[in-house]
Amino acid sequence: MEPIKAMQTKSAQEVRQMIRDGQLRGPTSGYADGYMQANLMILPAQYAADFKGFCDKNPKSCPLVAMGRPGDPSLPLAGDIDIRTDVARYRVYRQGVHIDTVDNLLSIWRDDLVIFALGCSFSFENAILNAGIEIRHITAKRNVPMYKTNLPTVQNGPFKGNMVVSMRAFSPSDLVQAILLSSRFPLAHGAPVHIGNPEEIGIKDIYQPDFGDVPVIQEGDILGFWACGVTPQMAIQQANVDIAITHEPGYMLVTDLPADANELSVA
């Protein structure tokens, strides 16, 4: 894996090209300083209105950044985005069951599929790094740890389920700074939804994440938990949709939007 500074200084377009060329097949945390990264949900058009409503009712976990048109693999987030090739790894669900993980969508794309891009906490990580604060999973070259919780979302149509969170451990003083910095990125989940004891939000073993890698926690650290764009992957398991496509957790779409953007784009 490249040094952190080299990862940060790559442009969004360079990162997408690396993904298209098969040079990047790992998590995108730490890449492309200043650019917004996005979670991905792709659904048949018949479910699009209900899923948008789910995002509208749950803006903390599902901050909607962009929504595409049926069958269109582009998004108004960069002139060259092709969603079929520009994410390093995708999950394919059928009837709510994760049946496959693929490197591109060229063979399964359909003309009724609608893309949703949701903000990602990776977008505020570079602001924390640039403040001189260590993010432990990046230093350790690991994916961010993510956990299912007992925090409910608000149901809309067939979409419902509990929130997923990402966790970052900091010293007390660094956590205060991380909270202040992340709060400036409302489309990247903003400030944490919980601080401290993971059991209070239903996480039984902090060293057994549901997604991502085992966390790095140092003595004296306080744990911060941010709402996570993997939450919709819980919702589609309840919705019995014939096909749904998401990103592999931690393998994001890197956009040309500034990381601190705060306006929705609709194709």
Score class of each variant (00 low, 15 high):
K5C: 07
A6I: 08
R16Q: 04
R16P: 08
S29P: 01
G30E: 14
D33P: 00
Q37H: 11
I42Y: 01
L43G: 11
Q46F: 14
A49N: 11
G53Y: 14
D56S: 12
M67G: 12
R69S: 10
P70V: 08
D72P: 05
L77D: 00
G79E: 12
I81M: 07
R84L: 04
D86Q: 00
Y93T: 02
R94L: 08
L105T: 02
F116Q: 13
A117T: 02
S123W: 03
N126F: 01
N130I: 04
N130S: 10
I133Q: 00
R142V: 01
R142E: 00
V144I: 11
V144G: 02
M146P: 03
K148S: 12
T149W: 12
N156F: 11
F159N: 07
V164C: 15
V165T: 14
V165D: 14
M167T: 08
R168H: 09
R168W: 03
V176P: 06
L180Y: 13
S182F: 03
P186E: 09
A188E: 01
A191R: 09
P192D: 00
V193D: 02
Y207Q: 12
P215A: 05
I217M: 01
D221Q: 08
D221A: 04
L223T: 06
V230Y: 13
Q233A: 11
Y251L: 02
L253D: 06
A261M: 13
L264F: 15
